[in-house]
């Protein structure tokens, strides 16, 4: 009797496990099935190119991009010892420091202004977000005219006040700043719109209670608006940081990386290496470095940001 019971027990337990395992497998496969579309798309357009880029970064290539010589880490070693690449890294970080805080702060300022309930505020909201509708190319051409050394408005205004003309895009000490101004102007519309959306979704009862308590405007701004806006701000900062690292269009249009490589940001440098010098190996190595930088920065941001962000 006892033996039988044990036996039957022994038979029943594995059966249970089997069924459980089977169910788990089916659930897993179902999950995969639902994820399939995005897995395939990511694999084809992101993961494969990523692996391919890492692979290429260990090789020298001919002009059509097929690998010729395996060089190991030489591409990386040459890159980090090259003054041009170091300059490019320096410019990229400077550019990020110029543009990200600038865009977010100005965007926040405009969004807070436009969040007031005033007559005709719709007009200002449209104006402030209008740069979103302008493509990078069109915006760059517009600024190219402003910066033009012969007939640019900016220099004409300076001239009017008796200040000496500035070589906006040709003077190495100005070029990066000029490109940054252009970029801030271009990205402002998007940042403004997202932040305004964030502001609009803050519950008004918070302000009402604060008002009853007699809180001042700036107190409310500091204690209610900014904390409640923090998830949106976090999103905006992350996105514009990544965007800033990947800037290409305005560089290509305005300066082509010049003068003296002062505005040769990393993505432009990758483009030059790959599609003008046909050094796909070196270009891939630079792309890998860019990938690592953005990965690390985003990771740090999430670690630091999580503590400060207030999710409702």
């Amino acid at each position: 009797m006892n033996e039988v019971a044990i036996q039957s027990d022994g038979v029943a337990t594995p059966d249970f496990k089997k069924i459980k395992k089977k169910q788990q497998l089916i659930r897993f496969l179902k999950g995969i099935l639902f994820l399939m579309p995005s897995i395939i798309l990511f694999a084809v357009f992101l993961f494969y190119p990523l692996i391919r880029t890492i692979y290429l970064s260990f090789f020298l290539t001919d002009a059509s991009g097929s690998t010729t010589v395996f060089v190991g880490l030489d591409n990386f070693i040459n890159m980090f010892s090259s003054p041009v690449f170091r300059k490019s890294m320096q410019s990229t970080f400077l550019f990020v420091i110029f543009t990200v805080p600038g865009t977010v702060l100005i965007g926040l300022f405009l969004a807070i202004l436009a969040n007031e309930k005033l007559k005709g505020i719709g007009f200002f909201r449209t104006i402030y977000s209008s740069t979103m509708g302008i493509s990078v190319a069109a915006g760059s051409v517009f600024w190219l005219f402003l910066f033009n050394p012969t007939m640019g408005w900016l220099n004409e205004i300076l001239n009017f006040f008796g200040i000496e003309a500035i070589g906006w895009l040709t003077d190495p000490s100005w070029a990066l700043l000029s490109v940054s101004i252009t970029t801030i102007w271009m990205n402002l519309g998007f940042i403004f719109l997202i932040l305004l959306g964030g502001l609009q979704s803050i519950d008004s009862y918070l302000y009402e209670s604060a008002e009853i308590d007699g809180a001042s405007y700036f107190y409310k701004l500091r204690r209610i608006t900014i904390p409640m806006l923090s998830p949106t701000l976090f999103f905006v900062i992350t996105v514009s940081l990544i965007n800033a690292f990947q800037t290409f269009g305005q560089i290509d249009m305005l300066t082509s990386g010049g003068p003296q490589n002062e505005t040769n940001l990393i993505v432009y440098s990758i483009y030059q290496e790959a599609f003008m010098n046909y050094q796909y190996g070196t270009a891939s190595a630079q792309a890998v470095v860019l990938f690592v930088i953005i990965l690390v920065l985003t990771f740090i941001q999430f670690k630091l940001g999580e503590k400060k962000v207030h999710y409702q």
């Binding site: 190495p172 003068p259 050094q279």
Partner: peptide, 19 residues
């Protein structure tokens, strides 16, 4: 085949002198 790259190196050098 590397003359396009050579041109860019020269251009950077010229700009450095100009500045």
């Amino acid at each position: 085949d590397m003359i396009p790259e050579a041109r860019r190196i020269t251009e950077t050098a010229l700009e450095t002198v100009y500045n």
